[in-house]
Amino acid sequence: MFKDIEHLIRLAVVIAIALVAFVILRAAVVPHSFGQYGHYRGAAIGEIASRPVAFAGHDTCEACHTDVVDQKKLGKHVVVACEACHGALAKHADDPGSVQPGKLDTAVVCARCHEANSAKPKGFPQVATADHAGGLACDTCHQPHRPKIETEGKK
């Protein structure tokens, strides 16, 4: 009888070896803190928290750039945080002298919010940039901190 099922026993041994190898591999590669709080690595929370802060926050920007704050107050962009357009600038806030933010390409930055899309609310200012500006950068006509163009007579 044993001789007739020898091949099946050999197969069972191969399967057992594969299972043991899997268990060892699993123990070796799955991080210890996995599943501590949920379906993720528990230690990731501490690692993410210890990463350096990238955003300075608009209060920090406004402490120095008071002229821009005054401009923004006159337009709708008063509600837009500085780093929403300028990007994360904690390094600049820490060392304003040596770390200077790069110049923004308004043809790209403005379109992120203002490119026309039928899914956006009707009251939200939006343009088909290709038709509206024909490739020109938005700040050719608009002042980004106070974007509405006011004609002399209507001032």
Partner: peptide, 15 residues
């Protein structure tokens, strides 16, 4: 692929 077993007796094949 034989896993080292070459038993192809009638009984083994029936199993």
């Amino acid at each position: 692929l034989t896993l080292g077993s070459s038993n192809v007796s009638e009984r083994a094949l029936r199993i």
